[in-house]
Nucleic acid binder design. Structure first.
Length: 111
DNA sequence: CTTTTGACTTATT
DNA sequence: AAATAAGCCAAAA
């Protein structure tokens, strides 16, 4: 039965995001690439907007500039607060240093 | 089926 | 460095 391998891109994206370690962040493009579509970064954000998942650490997904993409009225401050809870630091430009907090695949060799 | 959309990314000005 | 344009892909209407 069923379609074991028929999981939509949406579900793969959610699975990847759930694999982002605590205290780390990943870019939309990175998540898209891990989900099998290196060019579908826009899709990731759109999917997240209507994901509705609870176990989804959506706040760990930011854009390639290391900044939060959500508009101020859309939860920008909330995402920032959640990341601060995970010890992710923001510089004076509200940007995260992807070299330090970016998810490089695993967390064994952090710094 | 076509068209629209969007929490993006990269290149160019 | 900041603003603009173009490319990109998948789901929803």
């Amino acid at each position: 039965m069923s379609n074991p391998a028929k999981h939509c891109f949406r579900e793969r994206v959610l699975a990847v995001i759930r694999r982002i370690p605590h205290g780390r962040v990943a870019t939309y493009g990175q998540v898209a690439a891990l989900a099998g579509a290196p060019r579908a970064a826009r899709q990731v954000g759109w999917i997240l907007h209507r994901s509705g998942e609870d176990d989804l650490p959506w706040h760990r997904v930011i854009n390639s500039q290391g900044r939060i993409s959500l508009p101020p009225y859309g939860g920008h401050d909330l995402q920032r607060a959640l990341l601060l809870e995970e010890a992710v630091e923001f510089d004076h430009n509200d940007r995260v240093d992807l070299q330090r907090f970016g998810w490089h695949g695993d967390q064994t060799a952090a710094r």
